[in-house]
């Protein structure tokens, strides 16, 4: 593992347990061994990202990479994306939107809001595992800024 990536935690916000497991397996297969912090709903993810006071200071010294599903039971991933990109402590964390939706307007909207990567989960498993593995390779070269 490259040293700069070593401290990075992958925050996986994904309500579907099966998807979460498949994503994790394939990331690991790509040789990425970083900590994966899974959340199955928006509320708990937001609490982790912004702390109990909602200020976001809690993420101040973290190196985070966020894997975000859009279809969550309690809110849409768009809401979370918006808050991440609006908060000074989290706005520089890369956000990878990983979802089943391939609607062009939704993709546009996510990039408008500051998403760094948008990936559609292919139903075809080969495509799916390929995408995740490549994402893992991408993770291993990406520079995640330290949040002041």
């Amino acid at each position: 593992m490259q040293p700069p990536f070593h401290a990075v935690s992958i925050v996986m916000i994904e309500d579907d347990e099966g998807h979460a497991r498949l994503i994790e397996r394939n990331i690991r297969r790509a040789g990425v061994n970083n900590e994966i912090v899974p959340f199955r709903d928006g509320t708990s993810a937001l609490e982790f990202l912004f702390g109990a006071d909602g200020s976001g200071e809690v993420s101040g010294r973290r190196h985070l990479l966020i894997l975000l599903d859009l279809n969550l039971p309690d809110m849409t991933g768009i809401d979370i994306l918006e808050r991440i990109k609006a908060n000074p402590h989290t706005k520089r964390s890369p956000v990878v939107v990983l979802t089943t939706t391939d609607d062009s307007r939704e993709i546009q909207r996510c990039y408008d809001l500051g998403a760094n990567v948008y990936i559609t989960k292919p139903v075809n498993y080969e495509g799916f595992s390929n995408a995740i593995r490549q994402l893992g390779l991408f993770f291993s070269v990406i520079q995640v800024p330290e949040i002041p």
Binding site: G18, H19, N71, T100, V123, Y125, F128, S129
Partner: peptide
Amino acid sequence: SHDLRAPLVNVMGFTSE
């Protein structure tokens, strides 16, 4: 159609596993 796709990813994924 969207929500039907999500479990399908699982079925397909774990079948491949």
